[in-house]
Amino acid sequence: MNRVFTGCAGWSIGREYWPRFASDGTHLQRYAGRFSATEINSSFYRPHRAQTYQRWADSVGPDFRFSVKLPKSITHERRLQSCEDELDSFFAQCTQLGDRLGCVLVQLPPGLIYEPQIARAFFREVRLRYKGSLVLEPRNDSWLAADELLQTLHIGRVAADPAVLSAGFQPGGWPGVQYWRLHGSPRIYHSEYGVARLRALSEQVLMGAASTTEYWFIFDNTASGFAINDALTFQALLGNAGNPSSNNVP
């Protein structure tokens, strides 16, 4: 099983976890010493300078990857239409991560239904600017009809917990990239997953693993501080697939 990226939404490290990370360096440098990826959600709310992305890329090792969330001005305000200038600006900024840019995440508002012509035009515009891993997190069941488009353009559909779509907690779309966003359940952003639930997920993934697939596991249950511990636990459960240095459940 190759190309497995495990980490959290952001790289904040709670004081209670400091002993499990290196004591030297910035928060990002210390975080990247234990994890293989992080998801940048702040790009959804505001742009970052190209120099900021470059600095982040320079702070991590060659195998570390960032997932970057598309701005809400594109997804929620423009609703995927007439947003070429916004796409140009976003990719001019985030591509300064270089080969550390591992994935781009497109999260849609619940009220945005699937309209094939609009979706096709939008994702073709994205693909003109970015050829790398791309995932979609729709929150309206109408997008379950978009799988043919997603497979054609090599776009994975996110498996989100708690599940919003009737398809449940399963990735879809193009199988070449499978992306799980673990927000915490039953209490979103707060609940801890714990060893039993994480072991079940790791066994499910390992049983269906393919060497041609890229796997992402992002823990976003940060509000009560459980994301770091859950991510470390899950990484250890995956063993060498999640992180060669973590072979024991902490």
Score class of each variant (00 low, 15 high):
3 R>G: 12
5 F>D: 07
8 C>P: 12
9 A>K: 15
10 G>H: 09
12 S>I: 04
13 I>A: 09
13 I>F: 13
14 G>Y: 11
17 Y>P: 01
20 R>K: 10
21 F>L: 05
25 G>D: 09
26 T>G: 12
28 L>C: 00
32 A>M: 01
32 A>Q: 05
39 E>Q: 12
43 S>Q: 14
48 H>A: 01
49 R>C: 03
51 Q>L: 05
53 Y>G: 07
58 D>W: 05
60 V>C: 04
62 P>H: 01
66 F>C: 00
67 S>C: 05
68 V>D: 01
72 K>G: 15
75 T>H: 10
79 R>Q: 15
81 Q>Y: 01
92 A>T: 11
94 C>R: 09
96 Q>P: 04
98 G>Y: 09
101 L>Q: 01
102 G>M: 00
105 L>D: 07
109 P>Q: 02
110 P>Y: 07
111 G>E: 12
111 G>C: 04
112 L>T: 14
114 Y>M: 05
115 E>T: 09
121 A>R: 11
124 R>H: 11
127 R>Y: 04
130 Y>G: 09
131 K>I: 02
132 G>H: 12
136 L>W: 11
139 R>K: 02
139 R>F: 05
141 D>S: 13
147 D>L: 07
152 T>S: 06
152 T>A: 12
154 H>P: 00
156 G>A: 05
157 R>S: 11
159 A>V: 02
164 V>F: 12
165 L>C: 06
168 G>H: 09
173 G>F: 08
176 G>F: 07
182 L>H: 04
183 H>W: 06
188 I>T: 11
188 I>M: 14
191 S>W: 08
192 E>S: 13
192 E>F: 08
201 L>H: 04
215 Y>K: 13
216 W>A: 11
221 N>C: 03
221 N>E: 10
222 T>H: 11
224 S>E: 15
231 A>T: 06
232 L>Y: 03
233 T>F: 01
235 Q>A: 07
237 L>C: 10
243 N>P: 05
245 S>H: 10
248 N>Q: 13
248 N>E: 14
